[in-house]
């Protein structure tokens, strides 16, 4: 497209003044560019992104690294209060992660272990079904995505998610306690949210779009290779499929029929 940024903005600005906002302006100046970017940017070639968590390799240190690797670049504030906290990935014990699957005679180290949890990017996500404005939806490549500019903050998705994967901005993230959030926003290249919208793990859509692994996967595997295995569940030759073939795995609350795509190798 033979047009520099300055010239583009100028024409786009004029166009907006004349009533060609957003997409219309793009259509005029670069026909097909919006469709192309919306389709190409996130989707990659995968059909169903998924993850296998190898709990044999998981440690407390890795869990901390995973959260930090995600929360800092995604500008997730620390409110210092579990009631209103925002988290895209975190950890919890076996009996809380897999309620009803514990028994009295389990090995103690198992019950003490912390399990890595995040959005399951379900096949049949109830959060998307209940959203009144399609502000959250299932992408063709399997990512359950959020449009933070469309969300009205009704929190129906939070009630509907059986995994507690969704967080709400109860306050303005930019007004979170400064002493807990030095240098916030930590990543100028990623948007901060306004108060009153729901957010959650996006499987690092912005990274997988450019062929990189999600932050948590990268951080975990730097500490111990193979802790988090990420890939296309639709591709029989992928690492995730190989891991699922060669190990017995479990999923959280699979009986609810949401089709969670995070698998756990437990022993």
């Amino acid at each position: 497209m033979g047009m520099d940024r300055r010239r583009f903005l100028k024409i786009a600005g004029l166009g907006t003044m004349m009533g060609f906002g957003g997409k219309a302006a793009f259509e005029l100046l670069a026909p097909g560019a919006v469709e192309a970017s919306l389709k190409d940017l996130p989707l990659t070639h995968a059909k169903k992104w998924g993850m296998v968590v190898d709990m044999r390799k998981m440690t407390h240190e890795i869990l901390v690294a995973c959260q930090e690797a995600c929360h800092l670049p995604h500008n997730i504030p620390d409110w210092g209060d579990p009631r209103v906290e925002i988290k895209w990935n975190w950890s919890d014990t076996y009996e809380h992660t897999f309620p009803g699957m514990e028994n009295a005679y389990m090995d103690e180290h198992f019950l003490e272990k912390d399990f890595f949890v995040l959005c399951n990017h379900c096949d049949n996500p109830p959060c998307c079904r209940v959203c009144p404005t399609k502000a959250t939806w299932k992408r063709e490549d399997g990512v359950v995505m959020m449009d933070l500019h469309r969300c009205i903050g009704c929190r129906f998705c939070m009630a509907a998610c059986p995994f507690g994967a969704r967080s709400f901005n109860w306050g303005d993230p930019r007004k979170a306690p400064p002493d807990l959030n030095p240098g916030f926003p930590t990543n100028p290249d990623y948007p901060t949210r306004s108060k009153g919208v729901v957010e959650k793990c996006n499987f690092c859509a912005e990274r997988i779009a450019v062929g990189e692994y999600p932050y948590c996967v990268e951080a975990a595997n730097q500490l111990k290779e193979g802790t988090l295995i990420f890939g296309d569940l639709d591709d029989p030759n992928s690492d995730v499929r190989e891991a699922l073939r060669s190990h017995y795995t479990i999923r959280r609350k699979a009986e609810l029929g949401t089709g969670p795509n995070i698998y756990y190798i437990v022993s």
Partner: peptide, 21 residues
């Protein structure tokens, strides 16, 4: 109860028929 009241308009311009709300 809404986090972002002005966006209530989205219920009309982007309605989702599978949503009970």
């Amino acid at each position: 109860d809404l986090g972002n009241l002005p966006r209530f308009i989205n219920l009309m311009i982007h309605p989702n028929p599978t949503s009970i709300l």
